[in-house]
C-alpha cells in the first residue's frame, strides 16, 4: 500500500483501513468512559490551542500597553494599519520569497538524493544514509549557530571555499539578497534529512513490477523516472509540498540567530515580525496578534490552494 496523500477536512482516515464494525463494538464498549480517555487531550487543546485563538482575536482588536496592563479597544485599527503599512507587506513578501526559495529546491534535492539512495548497492549504504539523514535531528537554533560560523566574514568557510573557484564571496549576512539566501540555505539544510526520508518512503512504495514491465518495453532510465516514478510519487510530493510550505512560513530559529531579521528588514518574515512586535522592546501585542491572524489565514489559504491545485494531479494508487 502506498502512503496516501489525502488532505481532506471531512475524511481524514486512511481509506484502506477498515474500522471494526460499530454494531458489535457498541455493545462491548459502552461509550461514556471514552470521554475520560479523551479528557487530557481535549483539555490541553482547548486551553492551549482553541482558547488562544479567541484571545488572539480579542488582542488584535485592542491596543495593548507596553507592560500589558492596559488595553484600549480600537476595533479594526490594527488590521487597517497593517494593510496600509509597507513594512507589513514587506514581511509578507519576505515570507513568500522564503517559501519560493525553500520549497521547490528542498523537494527537488530530496527527490534527487532519494533516487540515488534507492538504487541497491552491495555495501556502504548505511554510511550514505547516515551522512545524508543526520540534519533531521538538528534544531533550528543549532542550525543557526553552525551556519553563523560558516557565513562569518573573518573565520567562515563558505567564502574561503568559494575563493578556491575564483569567486569573491558576498557579505552573506549583511547584504539584503544574500542574507535571505543564507537563511534559506540553512533552512533547506535542516529540512533535507526529513524530506529525503519521506521521498524514500514514497519511492519504496512503488511496485517493482512496474519498472520491470517498463524495462521489458525498452523504456530508458529517464523515461522510467518520468513516466513511472514521478506520477507514482505524486502523493508524496504533494505531502512534501504542503509540509514544507508550512515549515517555511514558520521559520524562526535560524532567522533569530543568523540575522535577527536584518539587514534592514530583509529577513523579517511574518513570524519574526510577530515576535518582534510582541516581545521586543516596548511591545505592541495588538498589532502582533493582528499579524498572527493574517499569518494563520495565509497558511490556511496556501494549504487550501495547494490542495486544489495539486489535488487534481495527484495520482492515487
Amino acid at each position: 500500500m502506498a502512503v496516501t496523500g489525502q488532505l481532506d477536512g471531512s475524511e481524514l482516515s486512511v481509506p484502506t483501513v477498515e474500522a471494526p464494525k460499530p454494531g458489535l463494538m457498541k455493545r462491548w464498549f459502552k461509550g461514556s468512559s471514552a470521554y475520560l480517555y479523551l479528557a487530557p487531550t481535549f483539555i490541553i487543546l482547548a486551553i492551549f490551542v482553541y482558547f488562544p485563538i479567541v484571545s488572539s482575536l480579542r488582542l488584535s482588536l485592542n491596543r495593548v500597553a507596553p507592560f500589558g496592563n492596559q488595553e484600549i479597544f480600537v476595533g479594526a485599527e490594527n488590521y487597517t494599519r497593517l494593510l496600509g503599512s509597507s513594512e507589513f507587506w514587506n514581511t509578507v513578501k519576505v515570507s513568500m520569497w522564503f517559501m519560493v526559495g525553500t520549497v521547490p529546491i528542498g523537494i527537488v534535492l530530496a527527490v534527487a538524493i532519494a533516487l540515488l539512495l534507492s538504487y541497491p548497492v552491495r555495501r556502504l549504504s548505511w554510511l550514505h544514509r547516515m551522512l545524508i539523514f543526520v540534519p533531521v535531528v538538528i534544531s533550528s537554533a543549532i542550525a543557526g549557530v553552525l551556519f553563523r560560523l560558516l557565513y562569518n566574514p573573518v573565520v567562515g568557510f563558505i567564502n574561503h571555499w568559494l575563493s578556491f573557484i575564483g569567486i569573491d564571496g558576498p557579505n552573506w549576512l549583511t547584504d539584503r539578497t544574500f542574507a535571505l539566501v543564507a537563511v534559506i540555505i540553512a533552512v533547506v539544510w535542516r529540512q533535507l534529512g526529513f524530506n529525503v526520508i519521506i521521498a524514500l518512503a514514497g519511492l519504496q512504495s512503488i511496485d517493482d513490477t512496474l519498472y520491470e514491465a517498463a524495462k521489458v518495453d525498452g523504456a530508458s532510465a529517464w523515461q522510467r523516472v518520468r513516466y513511472i516514478t514521478l506520477p507514482m510519487l505524486s502523493p508524496t510530493l504533494f505531502f512534501l509540498a504542503v509540509i514544507n510550505v508550512i515549515i517555511s512560513l514558520q521559520a524562526f530559529g535560524e532567522i533569530n540567530i543568523l540575522t535577527d531579521g536584518g539587514p534592514g528588514q530583509a529577513t523579517t518574515n511574518l513570524v519574526y515580525s510577530v515576535f518582534i512586535d510582541a516581545f521586543v522592546g516596548t511591545s505592541f501585542r495588538g498589532l502582533a496578534s493582528a499579524q498572527a491572524f493574517m499569518l494563520a489565514i495565509i497558511i490556511m489559504v496556501f494549504s487550501f490552494l495547494q490542495f486544489r491545485g495539486l489535488g487534481k494531479k495527484v495520482h492515487y494508487q
Binding site: 507596553p66 539584503r176 536584518g262 534592514g264 521586543v280 522592546g281
Partner: peptide, 21 residues
C-alpha cells in the same frame, strides 16, 4: 524617550536603507 530601543533598531535599518536600498 519610551521607545528609544525600537528607535535604535530603526537606525540599524536606516544603515541598510543606505547601503543596500
Amino acid at each position: 524617550a519610551g521607545p528609544f530601543p525600537e528607535i535604535r533598531r530603526i537606525i540599524v535599518e536606516a544603515y541598510d536603507a543606505v547601503l543596500n536600498g
